[in-house]
Design a protein around this nucleic acid. Structure first.
Lengths: 365, 365
DNA sequence: AGCTGATATTAAATCGAACCAATACACTCG
DNA sequence: CGAGTGTATTGGTTCGATTTAATATCAGCT
């Protein structure tokens, strides 16, 4: 029965030593099940364990860290906590770390690159043993991570391909996702599809588009270039709603006919839905809309949003596993397979925002 | 120009001492601007600072913590990170802590009381200097916080009134919120309002209802008891969508006439909207819906959700301030004004899900 | 008796910074 | 001239656990 001591002073290893009649060294060996404890008789061990338990001994984490030079902490740097994308990945990381002795330290850069840099500094100062960066949006300078690399801290980037030879990453197979989204619309009968692509510079957007085009080519579908638009370049996740709204409005204004919109991500899709609604076009009756990500609200809105689901929790778990693996093998094998990026399969989630094209599109003005 | 050293070995206080020609003691005094440093001439200080900078000295946080018995960490225990309510509070906390030397340590209980308990243990073990608990939903056992109190760790609960004499809290003025929501619907002309209240045992729900009734009494409006329903008791935040869907369906099935729904929170409101939609009733044309919380998706859905906004970031900031204040005065004045709960003002956010009652309600079957 | 090797335990060094008590020197003043 | 005060610096201890090297005991063997 472990008892929580309510004494004012901390219970130290020395106290346990005194109480059990052995030296601090012996107590330490026993409590840590160190190799040297193999010759210590069971009877002694019992006495020590009993004493430690009775006094409610908890090793002082400061002293232990100082001596062992280990923090037992893994930094998780997130570009924006309010972005559900980040949150879900975080939950995956946490789930994997829970049964270990490692503690995730979460820092939120609030979409500001400067914060991110400062936080990397803080992470180093706090001596994190590994670093996971969730930065789907920010196009940040890779030099920030050089310090990290310098200190032999295993690092992984989630949700973005850094195209750096020194840092590994895990992300969704954007091309497969783009392909699946286009395929879904095509199978519902849509031939005139409008596209709201992500910012030009984003690798994510380029890969998704590549998938879309690959499918179009396979079925010999010609894409109308007047229906292809990009979100503006300087964006963070929270502004993609506004971007989607604006670009969809332009599409509607253009007068080009389309029966579906394939949006860069869920928030962009919601912006498009708002624009359609304001123009008097119903979703999905008058126009289907498909997103990308499957953030939690997508299941709750009416209509539910059809989207390409990124396995975010799984990506978080992969990240944590990656770090743990490297931490475990750090001593025997220091070399990492650098520049690797692991792709995970996306899944189409069909909800209410897409529908078969049955009747001819009503034109309203 | 601060240079990041890339040497294999850490730069220690001793190194700076050797490089500057002074003793470690002197170096320590200067770098910490300790009281005793007042007699040290500027010239010496400059030399030491220069040496420290040149070598890229960073104090070892383990050693410092051990000696000073301070972790410089503040624990933030969150009932569910995926809940936007928690996320926003977290951002408030972080914003306040950013300019300080304190680091927030976030732990996510994933809606499981058992986790919460385990995490409190971990927090104590990691020696957090303060604790903020965001637990709007969970009706957890207060005994968990007893250990905390025992150790003189300043603690604050956000989003729930614990009704405990030993722990303070900050939360929104739920009664004022309920009042404002009802007032809004009334002013739009709604007289037949349906209510989806929260679980009976939740203090939040009771207070909101009190506000609703107070307004109704003031304008002599009789509430139809057939239109008053409760969400089931055993719930977490993620299931309130399903709850809202189910209860709203029951209301629709009941055949009672109503022109608006006042929901316990935003997710419940979204559940209700789904139910209405499935029954062929449009929002807000056929029925207005109002929520409570103003979680981020509420602004993005179509129609946007009218709701009572909780000042979540501000509550987070208040919490951080509270802890910082107590930490600052810990030594001179250990006594806390226990059992206090600070109320913050909610704000009505009118969006597209509520509308004036103009035409008579179409009845569809 | 002397040696080996397994068993059992501990003294002492270490991690790096903080800080109290001590020292050394230069002054001023009665 | 010795006591007192302010200025400048440092030696040495402390925080609490880990770990290496060392010591002590005893059984078994030649």
């Amino acid at each position: 029965m472990t008892k929580i001591s309510s004494n004012r002073r901390r219970v130290t290893l020395m106290d346990v030593a005194r109480a059990s009649g052995f030296s601090p060294s012996t107590v330490s060996l026993v409590l840590n099940e160190a190799p040297l404890a193999r010759y210590i008789p069971e009877k002694t061990k019992q006495k020590i364990l009993e004493a430690a338990d009775r006094l409610g001994y908890r090793p002082d984490i400061f002293a232990r860290s100082l001596r062992s030079q280990r923090s037992q902490m893994i930094g998780v740097l997130v570009i924006d906590l309010a972005d559900p994308f980040c949150t879900l990945i975080l939950q995956g990381v946490e789930r994997k770390l829970l049964p270990t002795t490692y503690l995730p330290i979460v820092m939120d850069a609030h979409n500001q690159p400067a914060q991110l840099e400062r936080y990397v500094e803080m992470m180093i100062q706090r001596r994190v043993e590994g670093l996971i960066t969730v930065a789907n949006w920010l196009l940040f300078d890779i030099t920030v991570l050089e310090d990290i690399d310098d200190r032999q801290i295993p690092t992984l980037v989630v949700g973005r391909d850094l195209e750096s030879p020194t840092v590994n990453s895990v992300l969704v197979d954007n091309e497969a996702g783009g392909y699946a989204a286009m395929e879904h619309l095509y199978q519902l009968g849509h031939r005139e599809v409008a596209f709201v692509r992500g910012p030009r510079r984003m690798a994510d957007s380029r890969m998704r588009w590549k998938g879309v085009r690959r499918f179009a080519t396979e079925v010999s579908l010609r894409l109308n270039s007047a229906l292809i638009r990009d979100l503006p370049g300087t964006m963070d996740s929270s502004s993609s709603f506004d971007g989607g709204l604006k670009v969809a409005n332009e599409l509607i204004q253009s007068g080009e006919k389309f029966t579906a919109i394939l949006a860069f991500d869920d928030l962009t899709a919601y912006g498009a839905i708002r624009a359609l609604s304001e123009a008097g076009r119903r979703v999905p009756d008058d126009c289907s809309v498909i997103g990308f990500d499957d953030v939690p609200p997508s299941a709750l809105s009416t209509p539910g949003l059809t989207t390409i689901q990124q396995p975010m929790r799984e990506m978080g778990e992969y990240a944590a596993d990656y770090i743990l693996k490297h931490l475990a093998h750090r001593l025997e094998d220091g070399s990492q397979p650098y520049g690797d990026s692991h792709l995970m399969k996306p899944t189409l989630i069909a909800r209410g925002s897409t529908a078969p094209i049955t009747k001819p599109v009503r034109k309203r003005k």
